[in-house]
Structures are given as structure tokens and as C-alpha cells.
């Protein structure tokens, strides 16, 4: 007889573990990655590789030599962070930019709080925002690098649709004029968007990833759906009020990383609320702040900031938004 095990109930456990969940996220990112390799060729591969390697390395070094704890890079969470960081950068970013982002993401945002599960902010997003603020020119340089497969690179404009719209509005143009001057077709935005960071090229690829995550039950559908819904409703209302200066729902949803952010960044387990009530408040908050930044702020997109701002509310939401309890009132006496 093998050695007799004794433990408390239950005696069965799920097969999933942290590593398998993270692996599922990586698989869900694969379509977007493939699309970006198709469009940006070597530079996309380079960014992702540098991102993953530097994130894993930073985590390994910190755990091994500074925290002197068990090294847990095997759980793939650093790999996901590296991947997401790279996918959030412009395709023309130099490799050292990714390394700096990785050091900020893992070294400052994740490990100083104690590692996996302890951080307040989404590491990849802070990395991106840090770079955006520190290197604004590099981070808004949407020139298209060399590609392996596409020859008609001229078909792409050099700025994101949101950026063009924002600049145009600032220059005193109205939206119909801007749209007339630039050919944004929804077909293009849905399948292959003109300009943007590595990962947000194709909405279709991102949605494929979303469906995969839902099927594997890695994430709940609440967060992405509520964020997109909130943005659609809010921009719809503004657009109805004045279509000359407020962009419409479809334009807003398919541009500026809303899909990438809401599917892969806002749903990060660690930095999103745990109960359904909290999730609803959190997601609506992200949607509202995104629209406010886009319409009234200095940055053309804003979902990164919106997610980070709502990240700060998560501990509070976890504390006050309790799940629906089974037992309602306490018996008297």
C-alpha cells in the first residue's frame, strides 16, 4: 500500500492552477500576436521577446537576490505581464524602452508590494503609462516599421484615429470634416486598424481571445462587457447631443485600446474586485473615466489611465461590496 494520506475534506481539487490560468491568457493573446507579426514583422516579435525575457528576468533576479524567497517565475505571470507590456507599445519602440517598462512593471509595481497577488496596480499598464509620460514622443510615434508580408504599408496612416480626431478638433475642425479628410472605415477598424500599438491592430483577434477566455472560464464576461457597454452608452449620448465634436460609440469602442484594455488589462485578477457588485462599479468607473479623458482630457485615448484610477478603488470595493450572503438576518437571542 502506498503511504496513507490524511487531510481534512474536501479530498478533490480543481485541476487548474495559477500556471494553467496564465497559460490560457497567453493562448488568448496569440491571435493578436500573430496579426501584429503579420503587419509589423520582426519588430513585433522583437518587442514581445524583449518584454517577456526582461520581465521574467527582473522577477527572477529580485526573488533570488533581493527578496531571497522561492523563485516563482514558473507560474507564467511575469510572462503575461511582459507580453501585455509589449502589446501596449507602438510597433516602432526601441528595445530598451521595453526593458525600462519591464523594470518598472515587475520591479516597482509588482515586487515591491510582495509579488504575485499583492500589487495594487496592473504592472503592465503602469509600465506603459510610465513610458508614455517619460518618453511621450517615442510612445506616440505610430510610424509603421518594415513588414515581412505587407507591401502596401502606405495604406496606413501614421497616427491613431483618436489622435487624428483630437488634433483635428483642437485645430478647430468638426468631426465630419476630419472623417472626410481621413478614410476611417469600420471594416478597417474591426479587422485591421490603421495605426496603434502592437496588440490592438485587430479587434477581431482580440475578440477571439475573449471568447477563448470565456470558454475556458478564465475570466467572467462582466468586466469587458460592462466597460464596452458604458463607453457605448456614454459616447452615444454625447454623440447625439453634438455629433460635430463628440465621436460616436463604434468609433470609440474599436479604437484606442478599449478592447485590449477591457479584455486583458481590466480583467487582471489581482487588480480587479472579487465580488460581482464590486466588478460592476469598477467596470462602469473605467468606462466613464475613459470617455471623460477622451472628450475633455489631454490624452486622446485614456483607457490605461481609467483602469489605473479604478485599480486604486479595488481594495475599497473588496471591503464594502460583499457578495450576496445566503443568510440574511441574524436570529434574535
Amino acid at each position: 500500500m502506498a503511504r496513507l494520506l490524511v487531510s481534512g475534506a474536501p479530498h478533490l481539487h480543481v485541476k487548474e492552477n495559477t500556471q494553467s490560468l496564465m497559460r490560457d491568457v497567453l493562448i488568448a493573446l496569440a491571435p493578436s500576436l500573430l496579426v501584429s507579426i503579420y503587419f509589423f514583422g520582426f519588430s513585433a516579435i522583437k518587442l514581445v521577446l524583449v518584454g517577456v525575457i526582461s520581465c521574467v528576468l527582473v522577477e527572477y533576479l529580485i526573488q533570488k537576490f533581493i527578496m531571497k524567497t522561492k523563485v516563482t517565475v514558473n507560474d507564467l505571470s511575469a510572462t503575461v505581464t511582459g507580453c501585455l507590456l509589449a502589446l501596449n507599445l507602438p510597433p516602432s519602440s526601441p528595445w530598451w524602452l521595453v526593458v525600462i517598462g519591464a523594470i518598472v512593471a515587475i520591479g516597482i509595481v509588482k515586487m515591491t508590494f510582495g509579488g504575485l497577488g499583492q500589487n495594487i496596480f496592473n504592472p503592465a499598464l503602469v509600465g506603459r503609462v510610465f513610458l508614455l509620460i517619460s518618453f511621450p514622443t517615442l510612445m506616440t510615434d505610430w510610424t509603421i516599421p518594415e513588414s515581412w508580408f505587407r507591401t502596401d504599408v502606405d495604406a496606413f496612416t501614421g497616427a491613431t484615429p483618436l489622435g487624428i480626431a483630437k488634433e483635428g478638433l483642437a485645430a478647430g475642425l468638426t468631426l465630419p470634416e476630419i472623417f472626410a479628410a481621413n478614410e476611417f472605415t469600420f471594416r478597417e477598424m474591426f479587422f485591421i486598424k490603421a495605426g496603434g500599438s502592437v496588440g490592438e491592430i485587430s479587434a477581431l483577434a482580440l475578440i477571439l481571445g475573449f471568447v477563448y477566455l470565456l470558454i475556458r472560464r478564465v475570466i467572467k464576461p462582466h468586466i469587458p462587457l460592462i466597460i464596452v457597454g458604458t463607453i457605448a452608452v456614454m459616447t452615444g449620448i454625447f454623440n447625439l447631443i453634438n455629433p460635430e465634436i463628440y465621436t460616436g460609440p463604434l468609433f470609440n469602442i474599436f479604437t484606442g485600446g478599449v478592447l485590449l484594455g477591457s479584455i486583458f488589462m481590466a480583467t487582471d485578477y489581482v487588480t480587479s474586485p472579487m465580488s460581482v457588485k464590486g466588478i460592476v462599479i469598477y467596470s462602469i468607473g473605467i468606462g466613464v473615466i475613459t470617455v471623460l479623458i477622451r472628450y475633455f482630457g489631454a490624452y486622446p485615448e485614456g483607457i490605461s489611465f481609467a483602469i489605473l484610477i479604478m485599480n486604486t478603488t479595488v481594495p475599497l470595493l473588496n471591503k464594502y461590496c460583499k457578495p450576496w450572503r445566503y443568510a440574511k438576518e441574524v436570529k434574535n437571542g
Binding site: H13, T72, D75, G115, G117, V270, M274, K322, P323, R325
Partner: peptide, 24 residues
Amino acid sequence: TKRKEEGNCIRCGNCIDACPMGLE
């Protein structure tokens, strides 16, 4: 049945979703 090695809580909320008494 053997328990796997304990890792960090990743705050996925699966335990909350599973709890039939609505606890955390």
C-alpha cells in the same frame, strides 16, 4: 487527492463564486 503546493492568492474570486453561503 494529494494537495498541490500552496501558492499566492491571485484574488481570482473563484472561492467567492463557489461559496454557497455567499461568504468570502
